[in-house]
Amino acid sequence: MASGRRPTLTQSFCRPSTSRASAAQPSTRRGNTMRTTLLAVALTLAGVLVLTGCPGQRAPEELASPDPTLPSEQPIAEGSGEGLGRVLTAVPCGVAGPYGDICEIMKTTDPAIDMQADVANTMVLNRKLVDGKGSCDAYLAMGNVEVEALEKVGKVARAVPVAGMGLGLIVAKGNPLGIKSIADLANDNVKAVAIARPNSSVGFCAEQALKNAGVWSAVEAKLARPDAPSELKSFVMKGKADAAIIYNTCLVEVHTPGQQRQEEGQGVSTKLQDVGLIDQQLYEPFSLQVVVPTDAQNPAGAEAFIRACLSEAGQKIFADWSYIPLKPDAEAGKPEA
């Protein structure tokens, strides 16, 4: 899988001193609907390479409830149209690459379906759907926090995990401060660390990771928190932060379906360096999920897209884009009875 493109790291078996149930405590009060999702993804994530040098770890402190409040003027397309077979998908810009590749295989497997994308910032899409200012047939949600925000307002008919995700640590090219692990973020020479706000999965889980790693008290005062996860890379590139915790897929992402993934020496990788994956044991597992909204005009088309994502070919595509593939399961894409 694509994780082979990441830096070679020594596998660490450091775990939080608390149990899995305790480590996930901040999310248990958000309801039981995601437990099945988290279990499925956790089994897949367990074998991922992680950062070395886990410090002494402690139980996580209570995190703020996810609160998606980012306003935006960017629209999400209104309605799903009347054309038979048309499937309008709300696609976060960072997921445009695998989405485009999966649409290509659907031209063969589901030629009657017309896949159309509304590509925008993930926070923009989530906010519009939560506020009822836009609709779609399928939405690629970048984590459990985003799905739960929609569940709270009754907008989720069905949510299916299609690929695992993780957290990555990035620094400026050349790694001038010699940052090798999340523990190094507490060092005095590290002046600013960028993480997203907790109304996104990447921000919520970054807080968990820092707290479980035992470095929150040393890092909290030097956090730089942009309004959108998409700004994390630019904070490091512009010198506003010495390091950032990002979605592990961010360094290879493209923002237009059909484009090839960014490789080493291309795009942002000329200015940023991937230190490696953050130990998944430090935060609640999360996944890329296909949400079928309650107001979807073509739910059958959305189900066809889910099947394509969960197919062997679809899972290989996700792996090629540095997502963590789930074990393909033909039954997983079927609606519950």
Rank of each mutant, 00 (worst) to 15 (best):
V290R: 11
P198E: 09
L84I: 11
Q289P: 03
D274E: 14
S135P: 08
S201L: 02
A224S: 14
E263C: 02
D67H: 08
V41E: 09
W216E: 13
E78A: 14
K155V: 07
T108M: 09
Q57I: 00
C205R: 02
K180Q: 14
I76D: 12
P75E: 13
Q280V: 05
A24V: 00
E220M: 02
M237V: 06
A319D: 10
S269V: 01
P293V: 02
T294M: 06
I317Y: 07
A302C: 09
T270Q: 15
I102H: 12
T69Q: 13
D329A: 09
A337H: 13
G79P: 11
N187V: 00
P176V: 01
L125D: 09
D131H: 03
A59G: 14
T249H: 08
M1V: 05
A244C: 07
Q315R: 08
A192W: 06
A183G: 13
A218Q: 15
L88A: 09
D274N: 15
R5Q: 12
E62H: 04
F235I: 01
P325I: 00
S27F: 03
Q208G: 09
P325E: 06
D184L: 01
R307P: 04
D279L: 01
K173W: 07
P66I: 00
P299C: 03
K133R: 15
D188K: 14
Q25M: 10
G31D: 13
R127Q: 14
S12A: 10
D110E: 15
V254W: 08
G81V: 01
S311F: 05
T8M: 04
N212T: 11
E264H: 06
V153W: 10
G265C: 06
S200A: 10
K271T: 06
K133T: 11
G166A: 12
D110P: 04
E151Y: 03
A218M: 07
S19E: 13
S22G: 14
E78T: 14
D110L: 04
Q57T: 13
R6G: 10
T37Y: 08
A244W: 04
G267E: 12
I245W: 02
S217Q: 15
E303F: 03
N32I: 00
D227F: 01
E303M: 06
P176G: 06
I179D: 06
F305L: 15
T33I: 04
C103I: 02
S200P: 02
G143I: 02
K334H: 07
E82I: 03
V50E: 06
A138G: 13
Y323W: 11
S217I: 00
D110A: 15
R35A: 08
L125V: 12
L84R: 15
G276H: 04
